[in-house]
Design a protein around this nucleic acid. Structure first.
Length: 501
DNA sequence: CAAGACGGAGGCCGTTCAGA
DNA sequence: TCTGAACGGCCTCCGTCTTG
């Protein structure tokens, strides 16, 4: 390597470069002067100059060390950003300012901010304090909405619409009986409507975000099937029927008014979660206290599973890639550990690469090297014998193997956590659905009260039902065309919501 | 010309991957 | 679990340039 082709003048320099014998450690002065040091104490150079020869212990900074330091700095930066961000929050500005003026550290202020935020049920699940503010979602998981009653035009359409089939008999009868007699006063009905609207319609928006994963397309051919979201899959929850799945296309004489027959979703198993979006498991925000009390995930169901795992993991010195991934990826993405990126190995060799392997290959190449004058053995005096190299390499490989095992275990733990969270969400969904059914049933019971709001609602529901029936026919047609290679998705809910507004 | 400055070649070592 | 190979980062220090 020392002998090179004499090409350009600048390269002649390189051609005269002879191989050298590196010492294990150079003294501070030689290092500073980039001079050769014989590692003696004092070294020959310092001795000849009469200078103080000192050797300072080098803190060998490995990639891990640097990455850990980087993460530490990023964490500190996040804390500062969070504190500065709190200055814009009306309720916190004064407090944060006072703390800053009093000389309190950013870390201390950040911790207090985190404690304050942790009062909410969402944040209390965040185990890693350093990631708390990072994972807080400002938007609520869902917002209560109110479905307006039908417009007059729709009511007219509803009146002119003839309801067919046994499914419609009940609702049709309810509408026809509206004028027969009144079981309650208008005041009672007035008192009923707002509460019903609040309880039943406020939950209507929830299921749409949940039922995306399950391809099971069970419809609900119940007398009041129109009251349940179209294509709602039916799995009875554990709390009701031990998680058993009930097909809904053959319901027999099920009493649909029994709350025990309400629907839930199947929990995706580890084998069918191909499109299972981990990132959807963000910190849930309970819209009200009732829901917050209903949703009680176990402490280990942290929505920031990755961070909690990281917290229980060895330090970043042992797990450099995990720490890096958790912070460098986006906050959402990093909630669950991703598999380590596989580095594509380059097989083209270059000078740098071949020289880098010289240490490993020096044993076999030493004879060749020795055959040329200045290409003497490149071994430094401190070079360990090959057997020691093997031992060191064995240890490194064992560490690597342990790390891989740890990563596998972490992934499995994250999967378990996410699955448990999924079950919680579906239980919650079932409960919400049950409440909606109860509310609608209560409204139906007041069909005879002749209250204008209830009447409007009933007509609106009847219209929806007719449209759903039509969309059911559309679906059959769609299925047929899809089988023939055509796909024309038309969402029935979109139709009815556009019509009944 | 001696001494200092410093660019950059090359050695050393930990890490990672693939295969045994 | 071990071993060979590849790779990248840190370090040493050779050799040239600059300065006084």
């Amino acid at each position: 390597m020392a002998e090179r082709l004499p090409l350009a003048p600048s390269q002649k320099i390189i051609s005269r470069r002879k191989s050298r014998v590196c010492t294990r450690e150079a003294c501070e002065l030689c290092r500073e002067k980039k001079a050769k040091c014989d590692s003696e104490r004092p070294c020959s150079r310092c001795r000849s100059r009469g200078e103080q020869c000192e050797y300072q212990a080098r803190s060998h900074q490995t990639k891990r060390d640097l990455q850990a330091e980087l993460e530490e700095l990023k964490g500190a930066q996040r804390q500062r950003d969070a504190v500065l961000g709190a200055l814009t929050v009306p309720g916190q500005t004064h407090d944060v300012l006072l703390r800053l003026r009093s000389g309190e550290t950013f870390e201390s202020i950040y911790e207090k901010l985190g404690t304050h935020d942790a009062a909410s049920p969402t944040n209390s699940q965040v185990s890693d304090e350093s990631s708390q503010l990072r994972h807080i979602k400002k938007e609520p998981f869902w917002t209560p909405t109110q479905t307006p009653l039908c417009s007059p035009s729709i009511l007219e359409y509803s009146n002119s619409t003839e309801l067919h089939g046994s499914e419609a008999s009940h609702i049709q009868g309810a509408i026809q009986n509206q004028n027969s007699r009144s079981d309650c006063t208008k005041e009672e009905a007035d008192g009923l409507m707002p509460s019903l609207e609040a309880s039943m319609f406020s939950h209507m928006a929830l299921p749409n975000n949940i039922n995306e994963f399950d391809a099971t397309d069970y419809t609900l051919p119940m007398p009041f099937g129109m009251f349940v979201e179209h294509n709602t899959p039916l799995d009875l929850p554990d709390a009701y029927c031990s998680g058993q799945t009930y097909p809904t296309d053959d319901v027999g004489d099920i009493n649909w008014w029994q709350p025990t027959m309400l629907s839930s979703f199947a929990v995706p198993t580890s084998t069918n979660q191909g499109a299972w979006p981990y990132h959807q498991f963000a910190a849930p925000h309970s819209p009200n206290q009732a829901q917050a009390s209903h949703f009680q995930p176990s402490p280990n169901l942290s929505p920031v599973a990755d961070d909690s795992i990281l917290a229980s993991r060895p330090s970043s010195r042992e797990m450099p890639h995990r720490s890096m991934g958790s912070s460098m990826a986006s906050a959402v993405q990093s909630q669950y550990p991703s598999p380590p990126l596989l580095k594509k190995r380059k097989f083209e060799t270059n000078d740098r690469g071949s020289s880098a392997t010289a240490g490993v290959e020096s044993d076999s190449k030493s004879s060749d090297d020795a055959s040329t004058d200045n290409k003497a053995p490149i071994k430094s005096p401190g070079r360990e014998p090959p057997s020691h190299d093997r031992e060191r390499h064995r240890r490194a490989s064992a560490r690597n193997w342990q790390k891989q095992k740890q990563q596998t275990a972490d992934l499995e733990a994250a999967m378990n956590i996410a699955e448990a969270r999924n079950r919680e969400l579906h239980r919650e969904y079932s409960e919400v659905l049950r409440q909606v059914m109860d509310a609608k049933n209560a409204l139906m019971d007041h069909a005879k009260c002749n209250h204008p709001a209830i009447n409007s609602w009933l007509r609106c529901q009847a219209t929806k039902y007719v449209l759903n029936k039509g969309s059911g026919v559309d679906k059959e047609r769609r299925d047929q065309t899809t089988a023939g290679g055509m796909a024309a998705p038309v969402h029935p809910v979109g139709r009815q919501s556009a019509a009944c507004r």
